[in-house]
Design a protein around this nucleic acid. Structure first.
Length: 498
RNA sequence: GCCGCGUUCGUCUAGGGGUCCAGGACGCCGCCCUUUCACGGCGGUAGCACGGGUUCAAAUCCCGUACGCGGUACCA
């Protein structure tokens, strides 16, 4: 094990935590735990315009739900050594290092307004430059501390004029670094522009804040999404100019939509894929299942195992087994994982949850014993706990309607008579005899008497009692529902279906 | 457009020169179990993007092409 691993998950609170964000957090977490290192949560709230109230709480709640505990974060400040953990509370650092960069000639003040920069870009575009930049060439025609006299710069600064601090990207330099998942990657500096480091509102951009904080917080490995790969060279440059050793970098493949492209709120909704972790919480996915599924979106242990606990994931995880290409999100597979985890849960442990769901459905007054029976009957057939109630609603109320397909198939002209005969026999049954085998015997008696096959009465009975054409064992279902209820439902069906 | 990254069954992936006429999982199909549906069991379907090299031998190495994705902001 390499010593002293420190990694961080650094989301910006611009909305609910996205499923892709959770995957990034997970990989960081697995890596940290595998190496006995620390996992840190840092909130990157440097864009005041995009800040969303409650987003931080959602991030924290989501991580907790998924079981990804962090060692340091906005709500866990360890000895104040590395904190605070919100970038909005760390302005002094960014200010300080921006100034250091300027003094040492690696950055400069720029006074151009947004419009002026835009004009420059448009002008260049019109004259045939497809990707105009604020760079080594163009900066000499702009208003900045490289072109203005020192007196003029001081005057503007003193007058409180708005400015940004830009990184002075070298004209010709190859920036090469080794990515833990992709190997060596290299960029030419002339393809980069003079990145704004400090915005005119005094807050840093991601690039500066990220580098400063990762260094100050002792981060050893930066594990983040591939969308950051292109800006990595800017970060490498910053580490160099600040005289710091760069942490190791690992850029994770993106999670893709089945329709192509990065999985986004828009294209996912359309396909019925929840994108926010909150949605999975609400739909009562098993957190272990989601985690297991996410772990395998871009990584695998190398053997044929797929259902792995968090502990197993921790001991198996390594960055060199992370794949390089994007992974399409397959909700079907997630549901399969959920099914695996749901089955492995103890029936008693499911009770409180199922009781909650029942309550949400507005049903009331069911004993724990009754609910436990429902759980036993439904457990092997559901993928999601919610289905215990949504697919088994008939345990809690008489069917409101009868499935038309089953009705067409099962309810024939003579069915009413058969059901009527069954009702008569059931009515004569002793309460003490109300058990699956005997209920079934009575049905068989009707069959023998009328000389028809099992399906002729069993399916109509199921339809009458549950409103559906499938479900758990019919006679166990009837037993659980109780004699009175069953007879009432059968009668109702006869009168409604003929 | 430019820059960067990628490409093994429909999807997630194993495999990184011979043991691969490519293995597992999800899905799909069939059979068995079940007088329902599911579960379970068994079997099947389907893939190395393309073209050139290198090599006795290439899914695996190299080059090119195509395609996909990401980036190209005083957003992260």
């Amino acid at each position: 094990m390499s010593e002293n691993v420190r990694v961080r998950f650094a989301p910006s609170p611009t909305g609910l935590l996205h499923i892709g964000g959770l995957r990034t957090a997970l990989y960081n977490y697995l890596f940290a735990r595998h190496h006995d290192g620390e996992f840190i949560l840092r909130i990157e709230d440097t864009d005041q315009n995009r800040y969303v109230e409650g987003a931080e709480e959602d991030i924290i709640k989501s991580l907790k739900w998924a079981g990804l505990g962090y060692d340091e974060g906005p709500d866990i400040n360890v000895e104040g050594k590395y904190g605070p953990y919100r970038q909005s509370e760390r302005s002094e650092y960014y200010q300080k290092y921006a100034e250091q960069l300027i003094e040492e000639g690696y950055a400069y003040y720029a006074f151009d307004t947004a419009e002026e920069v835009n004009d420059m870009r448009e002008r260049l575009q019109k004259s045939g430059n497809p990707s105009p930049k604020y760079d080594a060439i163009t900066r000499m025609a702009m208003k900045n501390s490289l072109t203005l006299s020192k007196d003029e710069v001081d005057r503007r600064l003193e007058a409180g004029e708005k400015y940004v601090v830009r990184l002075k990207v070298p004209r010709r330099e190859t920036i090469r670094f080794e990515d833990e998942v992709r190997g060596f990657v290299s960029f030419e500096s002339h393809g980069l522009d003079d990145q704004v480091l400090l915005k005119s509102d005094g807050l840093p951009t991601y690039h500066l804040a990220n580098v400063v904080d990762d260094h100050l917080m002792g981060i050893t490995h930066v594990i983040r999404g591939e969308e950051w790969l292109s800006s990595a060279p800017k970060h490498i440059l910053l580490y160099e100019y600040l005289g710091w050793e760069s942490p190791k970098m690992a850029h994770l493949p993106l999670i893709m939509s089945p329709e192509g492209g990065k999985l986004s709120k828009r294209n996912a909704d359309k396909l019925g894929i929840p994108v926010n972790v909150r949605d999975y919480i609400q739909q009562r996915y098993e957190p272990e299942a989601l985690v297991n599924f996410l772990a395998f979106l871009g990584w695998s242990p190398g053997d044929n195992r797929e259902v792995l606990s968090l502990d197993e994931l921790i001991s198996e995880f390594s960055l060199d087994r992370v794949s390089k290409s994007g992974a399409v999100f397959n909700i079907n597979k997630l549901n399969w994982f959920n099914e695996q985890y749901l089955r492995s849960r103890l029936e008693v442990d499911l009770l409180p949850e199922v009781k909650e769901i029942i309550k949400e459905y507005g049903f009331d007054g069911y004993s724990d014993e009754f609910i436990m029976q429902v759980i036993k009957l439904m457990k092997e057939r559901a993928q999601l706990v919610n289905e215990f109630v949504s697919q088994g609603q008939y345990f809690f109320e008489a069917p409101q309607a009868y499935d038309t397909k089953t009705r067409k198939k099962a309810w024939k002209d003579n069915t009413g008579d058969l059901v009527q005969a069954y009702i008569l026999r059931l009515q004569k049954m002793n309460e003490d005899d109300w058990e699956p085998a005997k209920i079934k015997d009575e049905l068989k008696n009707v069959l023998a008497e009328k000389e028809v096959g099992f399906g002729k009465l069993a399916l109509p009975t199921r339809l009458a009692v549950t409103g559906m054409g499938f479900g758990p064992d019919l006679f166990q279902t009837l037993e659980l529902l109780g004699k009175d209820d069953v007879i009432n439902r059968l009668k109702k069906a006869v009168s409604e279906l003929g």
